[in-house]
Design a protein around this nucleic acid. Sequence first.
DNA 1: TAATTCAATCGTAATATTGCAATAAACCAA
DNA 2: TTGGTTTATTGCAATATTACGATTGAATTA
Lengths: 109, 109
Amino acid sequence: MGVTKTAIFTDEQNRLAIQLKALAHPARIAILQQIISANACICGDLVDELGLAQATISQHLKELKNAGIIQGTIEGVTVCYCIEPTAWKLLQDNLAAFFGSYHLPDGCC
Amino acid sequence: MGVTKTAIFTDEQNRLAIQLKALAHPARIAILQQIISANACICGDLVDELGLAQATISQHLKELKNAGIIQGTIEGVTVCYCIEPTAWKLLQDNLAAFFGSYHLPDGCC
DNA sequence: TAATTCAATCGTAATATTGCAATAAACCAA
DNA sequence: TTGGTTTATTGCAATATTACGATTGAATTA
């Protein structure tokens, strides 16, 4: 039904899924890479770099912001988007734990 | 338009986004956790564990399989789903590199 | 004040995703 | 072969996502 049954999953599972979904788009990957490489970024630059319309970039930035992954501070006319360090580290650790929980089994398959 | 402009992004960005999207659902996170903890799993068990219909579980398994994250080997009547170790490690490394590329800046924000 | 600039929001269209009932397909056992 | 068990597929309905043009809002500059 296009509606996810969040109630039957743990908070941890839902939170991880939401954050991963925020990352799961090439435009948003590219935006984050730009922000990281520039070490501070404004929206206008992104519109020039990526080949997407200003409205589309703004929408992607909003999603990243809603997921808590980036923060935007108004800097006069422009907006300075940066990584939100705490959330970044938390997600990094969560993912490391998730991926690290798997170890190649010797039996089966 | 609900259609992603894959052409304007790099292969690396598109690949990472596709794999993250495969993980970006609580049911699929839960499925992977089950497979990992059981160290070998069959679909029927998942239907019992998670509160989703058999058709829905099968669909999620298909997506994980399409993304190359898991593999299913037919074992008589049942199917044994396992983590695909190579893809798992690759994604783990890619994500570690992506998250590791960010370092807290001293200026700005 | 008026013009300009940058980003957010609105409205809309096209497409994708999620979920399930019903059904099909594959396999084993008797 | 017939029946039981397990997973895949099909066909929907409801909702979400992606993208962009047009517009609005806020702040700067002339």
